[in-house]
Design a binder for these strands. Structure first.
Length: 377
DNA sequence: CGATTTTGACCCGCGC
DNA sequence: GCGCGGGTCAAAATCG
């Protein structure tokens, strides 16, 4: 067949070559992103340490009083608007719950909110107060991920303390609390998506009062980065309906069709299928706003999220349809080297194991995954 | 036998 | 005040 048309063979060969080159470039890019991730994760942790110091000092100094350089009005609102939620989505594409679909229409607004935040200000005091505040606020982070196991392994230890059937979803919602440290206030809710039962929605609430296990650190960095972006928001660009504070702030990390930030991070990566957009209902607090600006305008911080996904993509090739059953039982993040030891070498930074992200390279593969899982459920 | 899960009871906020 | 729904408690059951 091919013998008849040498030029066809030649064309195939050259295409093969260009594909190879492309792959090499992508690998390089991946390495670079991992380097960035290592740096950011390290920075994040040192910032966290510093924050805890400051937080403790403030606690002692004010004996339980919150110090905020904001108006009393803001303060009041802040307390009233406790329930804020950050939501991350991993490995979803089509089946969004209805209310989230509605939110999703506002992608452009989201761009304004997240990318349009310009000012850089890491003014110490403000930063500290804001961090402290986010501590107080019991931030909620929701992660949507394809997962067949009852719960995702996120590196922390959890103890189940309840289960309920929530209205509007036949799947039970399970309640867990963190048992890594005795008095850790962090809780999580786990529930399958009603529309697509292969999607597991995990909502974390609160802040750990202990160092995270190494396997959990990367995830925490990711979600904290997201939370940092979302806990506040820009009052100038926010015009969502805010009367209902139970409305989640949503950060969407998944679907293939909206590559805004995807493009931002993965300019040459045609194989990735990530959507990363955020929805920020509101901010009344100039301080949180400041910190948010600082965070969101820091490309490297944002890269944490992107790089995490990138890492997954990097290893995504080993995704195996045969491992569905225990996919989520495997560690979400592995091989995350400690900064103190060898992070500066820039290798083995962080890998998402493939269990829950049917991302990327092959649409057919993703489709098969879905089919297989349908059968399981 | 300690840790974890299960599960019905209980509590609390919210809307009517 | 009442019912509903979501979240938590805690005793019993189960697991490793």
């Amino acid at each position: 067949m091919g013998m008849r048309f040498d030029h066809e063979d030649g064309a195939k060969l050259s295409k093969l070559e260009s594909t190879k080159v492309e792959m090499v470039e992508m690998q390089k890019e991946n390495e670079r992103l991992k380097m960035i991730l290592a740096k950011i994760a390290g920075d994040y942790r040192s910032l966290q340490t510093r924050f805890f110091d400051v937080f403790q000092k403030e606690q002692e100094k004010n004996n339980g009083h919150r110090t905020q350089a904001i108006t009393p009005e803001d303060h009041e609102k802040e307390e009233e608007e406790e329930p804020e939620l950050v939501s991350l989505r991993l490995g979803t594409n089509s089946s969004l719950p209805k209310e989230e679909k509605m939110i999703k229409n506002d992608d452009k607004k989201d761009e304004d909110l997240t990318l349009g935040l310009g000012d850089n200000m890491f003014e110490d005091a403000k930063q500290e107060e804001v961090s402290q505040q986010s501590q107080m606020k019991k931030p909620r982070v929701s992660v949507r991920a394809r997962c067949d196991a009852p719960t995702m392994n996120d590196g922390c230890q959890w103890r189940k303390y309840g289960q309920k059937i929530a209205k509007g979803n036949p799947c039970p919602r399970a309640y867990y609390r963190c048992t890594v440290a005795p008095a850790c206030p962090v809780r999580k809710q786990v529930q399958r998506c009603a529309e697509d039962k292969s999607i597991l929605i995990t909502t974390y609430e609160g802040t750990h009062n202990h160092p995270l296990p190494i396997t959990a650190t990367a995830m925490a960095s990711t979600t904290s980065a997201a939370a940092g972006m979302l806990v506040s928001g820009s009052s100038t660009t926010t015009n969502f309906n805010l009367s209902d504070n139970s409305k989640p702030i949503t950060l969407d990390l998944t679907s293939p069709q909206t590559p805004q930030l995807n493009r931002y991070y993965y300019s040459s990566s045609s194989s990735s299928s990530l959507n990363f957009s955020s929805y920020i209902p509101r901010s009344n607090n100039p301080l949180t706003e400041s910190i948010t600006k600082a965070i969101t305008s820091d490309p490297s911080f944002r890269s944490v999220v992107a790089a995490a996904i990138s890492s997954y993509i990097d290893t995504g090739e080993s995704f195996s349809l045969g491992q569905e059953g225990n996919g989520c039982a495997s560690t979400l993040l592995t091989n995350f080297s400690a900064p103190s030891s060898n992070a500066q070498h820039g290798n083995n930074l962080m890998y998402f194991q493939p269990p829950f992200l049917p991302l990327a390279s092959s649409k057919n593969a993703a489709a098969s995954v879905l089919e297989t899982r349908e059968n399981i459920n």
